[in-house]
Design a protein around this nucleic acid. Structure first.
Lengths: 218, 218
DNA sequence: CCGCATCCCATGTGATACTG
DNA sequence: CAGTATCACATGGGATGCGG
């Protein structure tokens, strides 16, 4: 049942046989952020039917992309080394798709893992290197996702995004509209003025640095 | 009907909504080689049902990935500039999938366009730069695909693959088994000895240069 | 609870036939 | 040649069940 084949023999064909099924690449995307439990994956993919999630996890294991790893009592899913090689693909695909984002519909949510990968896609190391190290904390207004903030640490050309609540230079709350800040359609001060971004602590001007550091032109 | 949505708002999600449907990325792959007529696409995707091809072409147009272009009487499909931005994604995905190729099944074919993209994925410009310019011609034993050979010209760090029958340094016939040459599992002389590659004209040793120029480690 | 498995129905897909 | 129409079937979506 798994890899429905295309009758062709080639790299792209093989790839879509392995990770081309519906939802598969989104599972990979979330696992690129870190190992996840079944329930965490389900929470990060709010609309996936549980049977599909179970099926995909099995298929991806057979494909050698992910594996089940016992973590002292509980089971987590994680990428294999081969699966992790999809990172540049997913980042490039995410950057491409980001440019086609239009205004979010009401039912669309931003999950922490999807936003994390978007930030990685949008990160400009060469720009960041020229700026001083900065810590951001983003509060996504996603009611059901557990209120953990995203900790975004930019240190030279290095980016680290994780969950946490450390002290940062700029703490802000935002939602789907932030993509217009990253695309450059919305200037930082406008983003604040229109409520797309709400600065909770820190200097407002740092949002400009954020928009410079993370950018994908439309 | 088109973009079945995932209820999420992010780059990867948007991308798979646009090009994640079955067959879509293979159509994009073939169009990355060049504009194609409806019938050419159908020939290059032997197992695609015609209604699916028609549906995907419409969806990809709506998505802004491809467009119909009238070429003096006949109509061809071609990538939009935005669609062409998928090239690095498809190349990276192809390189990734190439590593997972196992022995080809009997019914699997290599199409000229898929092989062209595999070569582009496997091309190592930095290696090629150090070698002298070389022209190869590959004859794929794909009965139904029209016998046109693939003309592979390597000039410094530049690669050009096209159909044609110019004079070249090495002319060889091959089939699916060639992936083991590119992956390094099969040494050039073994490829010739076992019949995976049949040299029709030119010096046999040039196949070694080919295998060095085009390489994706398993 | 978490991690799935089952069931049912709507929809997408695939093979073939057919038409402008 | 370039698609559309039709219909059987496989798959996905959503709710629900269930064992550890």
């Amino acid at each position: 049942m798994a890899a429905r084949d295309y009758g062709q023999f080639g790299g792209v064909t093989r790839a879509v046989e392995l990770v081309g099924e519906r939802w598969a690449l989104l599972i990979v995307r979330d696992l690129l952020v870190g190992p996840r439990r079944y329930g965490e994956l389900a929470a990060g993919l709010p609309r996936i039917p549980t049977n599909i999630l179970a099926t995909r996890l099995k298929e991806l294991q057979e494909a050698g992309v992910i594996r089940r790893a016992p973590r002292s009592r509980i089971i987590v899913y994680e990428l294999t080394p081969y699966g992790r090689e999809l990172e540049p693909v997913v980042l490039a695909l995410g950057a491409w798709g980001f440019k086609a984002l239009d205004d979010p519909r009401e039912e669309q949510v931003i999950t922490p893992d999807s936003f994390t990968m978007d930030l990685r896609s949008a990160f400009r190391p060469e720009v960041a290197r020229a700026l001083s190290s900065t810590g951001y904390r983003a509060r996504l207004d996603t009611p059901h996702q557990g209120g953990a903030d995203l900790l975004i640490r930019v240190d030279g050309a290095k980016l680290d995004v994780s969950r946490g609540d450390a002290e940062v230079d700029l703490l802000f709350a935002t939602g789907p509209g932030i993509h217009r800040l990253i695309s450059g359609e919305l200037a930082p001060e406008r983003a604040i003025a229109t409520g797309v971004v709400a600065v909770l602590s820190g200097r407002h001007e740092l949002l400009e640095r954020f928009a410079t550091t993370f950018h994908i032109a439309a």
